[in-house]
């Protein structure tokens, strides 16, 4: 009932949405999640009651271009936050910066860095992660997936899953030589992996090479693998990109159930329609900056957001779910691929 207050008309939309409708009742956890941010004003950079992630002054420049310039952003614990924005808004770059895969240009340096108070700073779960590499960030419980799936295609599905687990003593070279020293933990890990695979409907594929999975199955595998380490917060980079509509629905369902189990979810998406039904909070980026944040319905009516999107999809109607035909989804996926390709090239 509280959801109606925050997002009036949301249910109507859901009914109309057809293929993307999530035929679930609002769970208690879902309601609680929405409630936790109910009183928060919908302005960029607003403080949240219980932020798990706080980011300050994160700037990333490539050559002369500023890809990301986020002054302040907080992510509320235990809810689904969607990070949206048109292509090239800097979402993925921002993601990379948070998860330690990239370093802000504004990172504090010994010499010649930015002024005190203007240096990049980020805190995750009460700990400073501003200068932490990707490995440590993941160990702290913030696990991510990638826009272009990084399922390890020449490992089997079950090996992929096992690789996601924590505390396997056999990952130490000296222990690895003697199987008895690690085999017990391996069995536990395998049991857990199979359980997760069953939940993501991949169990019958467990001995297949991950490369033989479809695009959507790879996305699922990547998500399941991320869950192997029991993360506190899971970061999904375009989980729906390149996934066929049937699977999209199940993916969205999985994302919600993660939240319902108490995880914080932050996911990147460039199409608002994909996110409106499941996100408790939406952050909109355009040209590297956070231009709006708030509940989905509020954000969608924000002129800044419409502006940002009109720049990219000037001939599309934002609120129309019929946009989500296969054709459009494919087109979007292709765009995403292109974007990733371009980014990949500049990196390579």
């Amino acid at each position: 009932m509280s959801s109606d207050m925050i997002a009036p008309g949301a249910d109507d939309d859901t009914t109309r949405a057809g293929t993307t409708t999530l035929s679930h009742g609002m769970t208690a956890a879902g309601a609680a999640a929405k409630a936790s941010v109910a009183g928060v004003a919908a302005v960029p950079g607003v403080s949240k009651p219980d932020p798990i992630l706080t980011v300050d002054h994160v700037i990333r420049r490539f050559g002369g271009m500023t890809a990301v310039d986020v002054g302040h952003l907080e992510v509320q614990r235990g809810i689904i936050t969607a990070l949206i924005g048109p292509n090239g808004a800097g979402k993925t770059t921002f993601f990379n910066l948070i998860t330690g895969f990239d370093k802000p240009s504004s990172a504090p340096r010994l010499i010649g860095g930015p002024k005190a108070g203007e240096a990049a700073k980020s805190t995750f779960n009460g700990r400073d992660v501003g200068n932490t590499g990707a490995t440590k960030v993941a160990k702290m419980g913030m696990v991510r997936t990638f826009q272009l799936t990084k399922a390890l295609s020449k490992l089997t599905v079950i090996e992929n899953m096992r690789l996601g687990a924590k505390d396997q003593p056999g990952e130490n070279l000296f222990v690895s030589v003697l199987k008895p020293l690690w085999v017990k933990r391996e069995l536990e890990i395998t049991a857990k992996a199979e359980e997760l695979l069953a939940r993501f409907k991949l169990l019958d594929k467990k001995d297949d090479m991950a490369g033989s999975l479809s695009g959507g199955q790879k996305k699922l595998l990547e998500m399941a693998r991320a869950l192997m380490s029991d993360p506190v917060m899971i970061m999904l980079d375009e989980p729906m990109a390149g996934v066929n509509p049937a699977l999209t629905q199940s993916l969205l369902g999985h994302i919600q159930s993660l939240r319902d189990e108490g995880m914080t979810v932050l996911f990147v998406e460039h199409d608002m329609n994909m996110v409106r039904h499941i996100s408790d909070w939406v952050v909109v980026m355009a040209e590297g900056k956070v231009v709006a944040e708030g509940p989905a319905s509020t954000v969608m009516n924000d002129p800044a957001v419409i502006d940002a999107y009109l720049g990219a999809h000037h001939n599309t109607d934002l609120g129309d779910d019929s946009l989500l035909t296969d054709e459009v989804a494919e087109e979007l996926a292709a765009e995403v691929q292109n974007e990733a390709l371009t980014e990949g090239e500049t990196k390579a």
Partner: peptide
Amino acid sequence: SPWGRVLRGIREDEDAVRSLG
């Protein structure tokens, strides 16, 4: 062993393995 599994993972995609901690 799991150690070898990590290596094979790295061979294929470092970033994926890094994202798993």
